[in-house]
Nucleic acid binder design. Sequence first.
DNA 1: AGCCAGGCTTGGT
DNA 2: ACCAAGCATGGC
Length: 317
Amino acid sequence: MSATKIIFRVHDYDLAATLDSGQAFRWQEQNDSWVGVIGKHWVRLTQTSDGIRAESVAPVAGWGFLRDFLQTEINLAAVLKTFPDDEPMRIAVAACPGLRLLKQDPWECLASFILSSTKQIVQIRQIVSVLCEQFGEPVFSLSSQKGGEGQGEEANYFRVQIPSPQPSPRLGWEREKNRSCFAFPTPQRIAAATEAELRTCKMGFRAPSLLAAAREISEGRFDLERIRRLPHAEARAELMKLRGVGGKIADCVLLFAYGFDSAFPVDVWIERALQRLYFPRRRASEQRLRRFAATHFGPHAGYAQQYLFHYMRTKLK
DNA sequence: AGCCAGGCTTGGT
DNA sequence: ACCAAGCATGGC
């Protein structure tokens, strides 16, 4: 089974910064590439001089899913033009031109951010990784005996050599091979688990929240697709009905999965960034910072937030 | 309204 | 080595 490839010709796209900027938690750097799973597709992405090269192990019917995920059609320059013309924004953009927003699957995004509360990015990655290994369907099977006529999911798997160049010294080869080979578990699968089982993934007190969301969704009481069609404020209110989802997490899902570009997640880091960059002389209340953010950054405030966040994380600390 | 919920990283000694 | 603090929070 030969790998299939495509090149997305896109400029001002910083792949590494984008995949590693705290919006998605499943991408791993492998040599000069990034490996991850989108839906049922394992993919390897590499930044090249003329864009982004994508490789998959199994042949894919089309690359629309990846174009959509990476948002390569977005005219970034046009987005940047809508930012306020002030010193902090200029510096934040200059620090990482080419930082983008992805468009992720709503369930994966929601579940990941329910698991994110009071966790640092490294820990969120660990939790999500174990969750996928434990409950996710393999996106391809290493030892499947089945040919093409199985009726279940198996028919979609392929017997392949995973093109993973070198084992990392810290995780053994076996473990390394198996990472990123699982789809994100469905709401149905999570709903079928017990709280105790979920807790083995080290998610602690977030387990009941994840379980509740999975049940609401799998039993049809909560419709993730309906959110997409609601106005911003209503969509936000709807998401916040879920246990474990407050304003910050709702904003993350609105921005990273549903493409509400004006959503502006405010966490400790953004709060500090706003305080330092926009109110250096006197201390501004959380209220004030929030109100300022809601009006100051324009229609693509979410992009602005991502630049401020990245700048804060990498340069200001 | 303040405290609690885990566990891992970070930074001090 | 060890230990304490601090988390890209929200619920009760």
